[in-house]
Structures are given as structure tokens and as C-alpha cells.
């Protein structure tokens, strides 16, 4: 049982470290910002999730002291990763004039939220 626990925790730590490297490698390697966003938002989030799960299982099963801090950290990180990616993508669209010319037309002439003011009949945010 102790061996199985150690194996599980070690495997989760290695999986987490692997996906952190994959995410950072994507950030360093991919050609433009919109593609670079994929690495940190998806692979790195998976990696940190696996590491936090490993830490939780380690303190619960090996140390016998359940710890809930990891749940707080993982919930916070999983909630904020999409928000930061969205903010970065919005700022990127606003600042890149060449990219704005390649955007498709939004339906009903609504325009892109970053570039045009809200319509009169739009529901209040």
C-alpha cells in the first residue's frame, strides 16, 4: 500500500512537471501571440493541477495530515487562467492593426467588443 501511494504521488509529480515544460516550451517556440497563448493556458494549467493533486495526496496518505490549501490554490488558478488569457487576447487584438483587418464580420453588425462601443439595445453588463 505504501509503495502504491508513493508510486501514485511520484507519477503525478512527474506528469505535472512534464506538462509545465510542455507549456513553457510552447510559449518559447510557437510563432505568434495567439498561438503562444495555448501553451500557458492549457498545458501549464494541467501541469499545476497534477502537481497540486500530488501534493494533496502526499499530505493525506503519506503524512496523514489532510491539507485543504491545495484546493484553494487550484480553484483560484483554474478560475483565473481563462480570464488572463482572455484579457491578453483582447489587448492583443486592440493593439495589432494588421490583425484587426483579418477579423471576420460579427453578425448583426455588432462589431468586436474590444474595438467598437456597445450597442444601444445591448443588455447591460
Amino acid at each position: 500500500m505504501a509503495f502504491a501511494t508513493e508510486l501514485l504521488v511520484s507519477a503525478l509529480i512527474l506528469i505535472g512537471a512534464f506538462f509545465l515544460v510542455v507549456g513553457s516550451f510552447g510559449l518559447a517556440k510557437l510563432p505568434d501571440l495567439m498561438r503562444r497563448l495555448h501553451g500557458p493556458t492549457k498545458a501549464t494549467t494541467l501541469g499545476i493541477g497534477a502537481l497540486l493533486l500530488a501534493s494533496m495526496l502526499y499530505f493525506l496518505l503519506v503524512r496523514g495530515a489532510p491539507s485543504l490549501h491545495e484546493i484553494l490554490i487550484s480553484v483560484f488558478l483554474f478560475l483565473t487562467a481563462p480570464v488572463t488569457a482572455h484579457m491578453i487576447a483582447k489587448a492583443h487584438i486592440l493593439r495589432d492593426g494588421a490583425l484587426q483587418n483579418t477579423l471576420p464580420e460579427a453578425p448583426d453588425g455588432a462589431g468586436w467588443a474590444t474595438l467598437k462601443p456597445a450597442r444601444e439595445d445591448a443588455p447591460a453588463a
Binding site: I13, G16, A17, S24, T44, I48, L51, E70, I73, T84
Partner: peptide
Amino acid sequence: LDTMVINAIALVVV
């Protein structure tokens, strides 16, 4: 910088 912060959190957890 955002990715560096996440990697630093991972380092602290490990």
C-alpha cells in the same frame, strides 16, 4: 511573466 508566476507556484508546491 504570467507563466513564470505559475511555474514559481509549482516550484513552491514541489
